[in-house]
């Protein structure tokens, strides 16, 4: 069966140590071992974006990274973004615009949006649409999501 490996990492500002199967991917580790169920699993092959989270400040797919690859790294999930206040403005804008329906894509969508906003992305609808094209949403028409991201950029840069 699969080999186990010891890892140490910081997750949402807390130190975590665990012994994990080598084959365990990061999002399953976060969901199953740490009960951080805000990161969702939609396709398990890096297409849908539902498991998008932040590792050492980079926006990554939690299903395309093994838990062992997060050894020594700093991981931030939707729970961490919310509790630290990093996503407060986006949360408010998503609520106001109804930029979510079932909410399954939402944590990943928010993480991608935050990456765009934090990188200084412009309130350019086409550019935002390009940026979030790695995050599938089956419920909205994407328009409210684009509106919400535009709102945040305009509000924070005026």
């Amino acid at each position: 069966m699969s080999r186990s490996i010891d890892i140490k990492l910081r997750v949402n500002g807390e130190d975590v140590g665990a012994t994990v199967p080598a084959r365990l991917n990061l999002v399953d580790f976060l969901r199953e071992e740490l009960c951080l169920t805000g990161s969702h699993v939609g396709c398990e092959h890096g297409v849908c974006g539902a498991c998008t989270l932040t590792v050492d400040g980079d926006t990554v797919r939690g299903c395309l990274m093994l838990a062992t690859q997060a050894n020594g790294k700093e991981v931030t999930t939707i729970e961490g973004l919310a509790d630290s206040g990093q996503s407060t403005a986006l949360q408010a804008a998503f609520t106001k615009r109804n930029a979510l329906q079932c909410g399954f894509c939402t944590p990943g969508m928010l993480a991608s949006a935050l990456g765009y906003v934090n990188a200084g992305g412009a309130a350019d609808r086409d550019a935002i649409r390009q940026h979030i094209s790695g995050n599938y949403c089956r419920c909205t028409g994407y328009q409210s999501i684009v509106d919400a991201i535009c709102d945040v950029i305009k509000e924070t840069r005026t």
Partner: peptide, 12 residues
């Protein structure tokens, strides 16, 4: 319930 889902507090 948008706020709950936006904080990763959904229960699927």
């Amino acid at each position: 319930d948008a706020a709950r889902l936006l904080q990763g507090r959904g229960r699927f």
